[in-house]
């Protein structure tokens, strides 16, 4: 195992600091939302985790394609890292959304496009890990994993478009909104907390992925050692 790079140590410290600041901004600094009250503060982490969650799944699909082209196992480790970290963050996103929805929509869950797509996406990536678990040969595992992340990455947006045909009540935070949807309006301080949340989770995301990649190379090393010893 190579020694921990200095940059990674710095990134670790930075992650903890930005997480602290983001929490402070979200819980104390940002004003209380008038209609929904305190629970609206959940939204800063909800968006932050959702952002890195989606980013990770896109990265994973790209890394999958890169693996299929180059057959370099580093891409595979990168892909696994991205999927795993994103799955964790996306899980937080879904639960936070659910906690927010309870007082706001008076229900834990609705079959809205975003919620449903999020749930299906999460299931796709859980299936991804089940697929990987079922294959012993590391090279084949990497190949199948890459193919599956590619399929998942493409089907998720189409799922979203299809479900949107059914109905939606989710507020649109960024981008154009339908006229009949409730729109969240943010004041200046809210925007600071919002954008800092995005930044903070990006830093944490990079840090965790880096750690997971290192873990992946350690896994590979142990696997090879096992093979050598058993021979």
């Amino acid at each position: 195992m190579q020694n921990k790079p200095v940059l990674l140590t710095i990134l670790d410290a930075a992650s903890i600091i930005v997480l602290g600041i983001a929490t402070y901004l979200a819980l104390v600094f940002a004003p209380t939302e008038a209609v929904m009250g305190q629970v609206q503060r959940v939204f800063y982490f909800h968006i932050g985790t959702a952002w890195v969650g989606l980013l990770g799944f896109v990265i994973a699909a790209v890394a999958g394609v890169a693996y299929l082209i180059t057959k370099d196992s580093r891409w595979d480790r990168f892909e696994v890292a991205a999927v795993e970290v994103s799955t964790v963050f996306f899980f937080i996103t879904i639960v936070l959304g659910s906690i927010w929805a309870r007082p706001a929509w008076n229900t834990w869950w609705t079959w809205d496009p975003r919620l449903t797509t999020a749930a299906i996406t999460e299931l796709i990536y859980i299936a991804y890990f089940m697929l990987r678990k079922g294959i012993e040969d590391p090279e084949k595992r990497a190949r199948f994993g890459a193919v599956y992340t590619l399929l998942g990455g493409i089907s998720a947006p189409i799922t979203f478009m299809v479900i949107r045909l059914f109905r939606t009540i989710h507020p649109i935070v960024i981008g154009s909104a339908n006229a009949n949807q409730e729109k969240m309006s943010m004041t200046g301080d809210m925007k600071i907390a919002f954008f800092f949340g995005l930044f903070a989770f990006t830093v944490i995301f990079i840090d965790l992925i880096w750690h997971r990649i290192r873990l992946g190379s350690l896994e590979e090393k142990v696997e090879q050692l096992k093979l050598k010893v058993s021979m």
């Binding site: 929490t23 819980l27 209380t32 939302e33 008038a34 209609v35 929904m36 009250g37 305190q38 629970v39 609206q40 503060r41 959940v42 982490f45 909800h46 985790t49 970290v85 964790v88 899980f91 937080i92 639960v95 936070l96 906690i99 927010w100 309870r102 007082p103 944490i204 965790l208 750690h211 997971r212 873990l215």
Partner: peptide, 27 residues
């Protein structure tokens, strides 16, 4: 008229930190 929803907020943040903590610990 603002409802008191701080319980939900606390639950949300506690949950986020617990999950992240568990993940880091598992790693």
């Amino acid at each position: 008229t603002t409802p008191d929803t701080s319980g939900y907020m606390i639950a949300g943040y506690v949950f986020s930190f617990v999950v992240m903590g568990i993940y880091v610990f598992s790693m």
